[in-house]
Nucleic acid binder design. Structure first.
Lengths: 180, 180
DNA sequence: ACCTGAACACCGTTCAAGT
DNA sequence: ACCTGAACACCGTTCAAGT
C-alpha cells in the first residue's frame, strides 16, 4: 500500500529559497527545510539528490524569475534606455534576493551551460548590439555585466565603506559602461 | 611543567591558506589544518577563536600581501598608465589566489573597516583623483573596482561562456571605465 | 511509492586531565 | 602554558522497515 506524498519538489524549493534568504546559505540545513514542508529529512531524498542539488534547484527557480523579469523590461524604445532599465531591474532583483544573487554570482556556483543564463545573456547582447554594433557587442556586454555584478556585490556586502552617494556612483558607472 | 608549543598562529594561517586554495573554503576542516601543522584540532583553539576567525586571519594575510603588491605597482608615471598597471596586478593576484579572492570579494565575508582594505582604496583613489579630479574620484573609483571585481569573478567562475577573446574584453572594459 | 527512526561518518567545539 | 583524548551537539546521508 503506497504511502501518500506529503510534499513536493516545488514546496521543497520554495521553502529552501525562503530559508536561504532568511538565514543565509551556510545556515540552511536539510532538517530545517524538511521541517518547513512537513516531512523528515530523509524523505527529501525522494525529490532531491543531495544538498548541492537543492541549491541548484533554488538557483534554477531564481533564474527563471529573473529571466521573466528581464524579458519584460527589455521591451523599451531606444537601446540606451532599454539597457538602463534592464540594469536597474537587475539591481532591484538582486536587492530583493541578496542571498540567491550572491550564490548565482559567486565563482563555482552554477554549473556552466544553464539554458536560462544563456537566455539572459541573449537579452543583453541584443540591446548591446544595437548600441555598440556587432563587432564590439561581446566585450561591451561583458563590461556592462561585470560592472553591474561587482557594483551590486559591493553594495550587498557593505563594500562601499567611504560613504558618499551610492546612487550617484551607480548612475556614474552606468554612464561609463554604456558610453560605447 | 608547561608544555612546549608545537605550532604557531603563523603556521596555522599559512597551512589554512594553502588548504583553502587546494580544496576550497567549504572543504577546509580544522582537523586538516591541525594535521598540517602537527597538532590535534583542539589545540588550534589556543591560537584561533574558531573557524570563522581562521578565515579572517587568512584574509588578513592575503590582504597584506595584496596591499604590498599594489603599493609597489602604484609608483608609475601618468595616472592612466598607473591605473592600468594597478588593475592588471590586481587581476594577476586574484588569479594566483582564486579561493581567497572569492572570499574577500563575496558579500558578508570581511567585517567592514579593515585598515588594509581602506589603504587599498586610498591607493586607487589617489590615482583616480589625478585622472578624474576630486569631484568625480569616488564614483569613478567605484566604477573601476566594481568592474574589475565583476570581471575577475566571472573569469574565475567560468562566467564567460560564450568564448570570444577574454583578454580583449579586459582591455575593452579597462578603456571604458578609465575614460573619465 | 513514499515516509520514518535509527544509524553512520563527519564536523566544530568544549573540557577535564595530563605534562 | 600548551597538548590531548573523550565527548557533545549537529550535520548530510543511507537504509531497513513500515504502510
Amino acid at each position: 500500500m503506497p504511502a501518500r506524498p506529503q510534499t513536493s519538489t516545488e514546496a521543497i524549493v520554495t521553502a529552501g529559497r525562503r530559508l536561504l534568504e532568511e538565514r543565509g546559505a551556510e545556515a540552511l540545513t536539510l532538517r530545517d527545510v524538511a521541517d518547513a514542508v512537513g516531512v523528515r529529512a530523509p524523505s527529501l531524498y525522494k525529490r532531491i539528490r543531495n544538498r548541492a542539488d537543492l541549491f541548484q534547484l533554488i538557483l534554477d527557480d531564481v533564474t527563471e524569475e529573473l529571466l521573466a523579469q528581464q524579458e519584460a523590461v527589455a521591451r523599451s524604445g531606444d537601446p540606451a534606455t532599454g539597457l538602463r532599465r534592464l540594469m536597474s531591474a537587475y539591481r532591484a532583483f538582486a536587492h530583493a534576493n541578496p542571498a540567491a544573487f550572491a550564490l548565482l554570482y559567486s565563482p563555482q556556483s552554477t554549473p556552466p551551460g544553464s539554458d536560462r543564463l544563456r537566455r539572459l545573456t541573449v537579452i543583453l547582447l541584443r540591446l548591446v548590439t544595437e548600441l555598440a554594433g556587432a563587432e564590439d557587442a561581446l566585450p561591451a556586454a561583458r563590461t556592462i555585466v561585470s560592472w553591474a555584478n561587482g557594483f551590486i556585490a559591493a553594495e550587498l556586502g557593505e563594500g562601499f565603506q567611504l560613504g558618499g552617494d551610492v546612487e550617484r556612483a551607480w548612475e556614474y558607472g552606468l554612464g561609463r559602461v554604456l558610453s560605447v
